[in-house]
Design a binder for these strands. Sequence first.
DNA 1: ACAGACTAGTCTGTATTACAGACTAGTCTG
DNA 2: CAGACTAGTCTGTAATACAGACTAGTCTGT
Lengths: 106, 106
Amino acid sequence: MTIGGKTPEMPAPPEIDRIVHEPARYTIMAYLYVVESADFIYLLHHTQLTKGNLSSHLIKLEEAGYVKVEKTFADRIPRTLLSLTPAGRAALDDYRDSIKRMLKGP
Amino acid sequence: MTIGGKTPEMPAPPEIDRIVHEPARYTIMAYLYVVESADFIYLLHHTQLTKGNLSSHLIKLEEAGYVKVEKTFADRIPRTLLSLTPAGRAALDDYRDSIKRMLKGP
DNA sequence: ACAGACTAGTCTGTATTACAGACTAGTCTG
DNA sequence: CAGACTAGTCTGTAATACAGACTAGTCTGT
């Protein structure tokens, strides 16, 4: 059946958090979701991102307030610790909900 | 618990079809999934996209082979009919699967 | 018959983005 | 002390989403 023209009901498209929607960032957040914190190198290997790319995603997540970045030193070499903020945790929960709704509807 | 450094197992990040992953295009495809075909105007109102934006997404979907674009005339006025190709249907199915896997995993 | 309003849809410009490679600061090894 | 290595950032680039200007053509009123 072909459908066309204007129709009365116009459900809005799903409201998606673009920060989380990027697969690379979703992956980062999903990893951080299950641990207290993880370091740059750990994420680097698990996400398969390049260093440059991981770095910029982390900056974006920090700017969004989703990830806390802590720069420390471990045995004189720098070590960047990443952790999900409460806002980040909530954002991931919300995102998962919207996606599930998207898969069901419209 | 803080986790860090290199670890043996390195699950790859989810392989996501970027064409479908864009919410606007997902929405378009989801609408087309349930009808034989729909026209430009119908999609315009249901997706809430602007005409320019809808147009370019449709071009992208056509280039991907996911949507068939048929230009006809209805009563002397142009009417563009859109429909999902078998490839498009498969792509949407696959996408939904990957997303579900992503929500479960990594 | 013609001017202006309207329609469906495309084209163009812009700001943002993801991404990777070059680079930096500093530490360790021979 | 030179060179290799480490952790991470900076820079350049190609691709993207998006909206407004625009086009081709039809309809309406006079």
